[in-house]
Design a protein around this nucleic acid. Structure first.
Lengths: 254, 254
DNA sequence: CGGATACTTGAGGGTTGTCAAAATATGTGG
DNA sequence: CCACATATTTTGACAACCCTCAAGTATCCG
């Protein structure tokens, strides 16, 4: 009954490790403080030294860095349930920033609480650690995208990834329709492309009948074809309940 | 006295967290089994389910993935002291491979031992966790390089990074000369470039008097200029002893 | 010493970037 | 609820950076 909004996080951790009722209660009560942010606002900035970890309850955020010459690289997009700055628990200084894509609700977990929980309940500690490792796996896949996939494949790939991530937290019933609050400029900064080229490549995807993207909504018309176009293989997301047939088109490691 | 070669790892962890003598002894005795590999051999392959974590004692390795269409992306290069597959402790299946660059000696730490150590000595657990977070920070920086830096900047940047990493483990006395067992093709696969373009860009760097690269040795003639050319800001490496003047040319977060 | 690997060079093309401006959508205040 | 300012998307023209293919040279290692 305490702060029921924290469920997305618990649901997510349970995907990684089963939790006991006691552990769940503990997590619920650990993040009593919540904050609200409007869209397009920085939550944390590079160089800061946070005192709490942030848990996203509602909305979407992204992590990014701006280089000396003004160019921006976006590192990740996050959905409800993500504890997107777990790293601040162990790394003193932020090496990047976090900003909202949409209006957001976040829960705060003081680092001291993190320390106590992880020490007393090593299983929870491992679950959160594991979550940060999946994060890193996603960074690697993005590296592969930016480094070795074409613009067309990159855009298809990130769409597959968002579809699966949102499906996992119950925000995409089938693999067909999701909220898409990402502008073309942001998409470019995430994929190492210019906004102009993103625009032209999106038109290609539409022309091929793979997607519709309008009114902040992405509709995927051919989920299997999109995955093939992206060379998408969701192993890197390390989903526990990766039932056969769940992500059609997935290939075993050849 | 037990397996003295493990020192590079302990030295590294101590950079992250101070360790007690008891903790150090424990670490020493935990990785009694070692393996030798020749150059250019796979150590772990995508799809496998390792039972031990690997700790690099001597030599250099890299992590990589080959996409469906045969293109390769290299994710990281590792130096002695790196526990480059800590993730296998918590993520069952490898989502990428690891191969040697040079002949290597590695120590094996069974996952069961990892579990016991991290449970009994949360400080060590946090140190290793922290190390995986620094790993992730480096992935992000590489993403920024591939996505938003020019070929010239990318190559300069990775040279700065390797210089600092090797300096940290005592393999670069000044910031001037390091072993460089990385071929131009590998460099291209790490930076999202073709080997041909890497070759031409290296010639640019030489022409500008920044480096000499010959006989698997990199000599940096102007450390500050190289960092400027790369837009290198080592904050993302989260080095503890980042004394002022250590990395000249470093800029505070503007 | 010889085969394999790595490096270098040239030519030409394609993907993607930049600049600029128009068209459309979005949101906020009155 | 409209109006206006702002943000986003779209289009065009052109250039640049980087890729591919191909072949030759140098180097390494067994």
């Amino acid at each position: 009954m305490i702060t029921p909004q924290i469920n997305p996080f618990i649901r997510k951790l349970e995907q990684l490790f089963p939790l006991t009722p006691e552990e769940k209660d503990l997590l619920q009560s650990s993040c009593s403080r919540t904050l609200e942010f409007r869209a397009d606002k920085d939550i944390v900035r590079e160089g800061e030294q946070p005192t709490d970890c942030n848990l996203l309850l509602e909305g979407m955020v992204f992590r990014y860095k701006v280089l000396e010459d003004g160019k921006r690289q976006i590192f990740s997009f996050h959905v409800p349930g993500d504890i997107y700055d777990a790293q601040s628990f162990l790394l003193e200084t932020m090496d990047h920033s976090v900003a909202t894509l949409t209006p957001c609700t976040i829960a705060l977990i003081p680092h001291e609480t993190m320390r106590q929980i992880t020490e007393k309940y090593p299983r929870i500690g491992r679950a959160i650690w594991k979550d940060t490792l999946v994060d890193a796996a996603i960074f690697r896949e993005w590296m592969a995208s930016i480094g070795r996939r074409s613009a067309y494949q990159r855009i298809a790939h990130i769409m597959c990834e968002m579809m699966v991530k949102l499906h996992t937290v119950g925000l995409a019933d089938d693999h067909r329709r999701i909220e898409w609050p990402i502008t073309q400029a942001e998409l470019g900064d995430a994929l190492g492309l210019s906004n102009v080229h993103v625009n032209r490549t999106l038109q290609e995807l539409r022309k091929h009948g793979l997607i519709t993207l309008k009114d902040s909504t992405l509709v995927v018309h051919d989920w299997e074809a999109l995955q093939r176009a992206a060379m998408f293989a969701p192993l890197y997301l390390h989903l526990k309940s990766d039932r056969p047939g769940r992500h059609n088109g997935e290939r075993p490691t050849a």
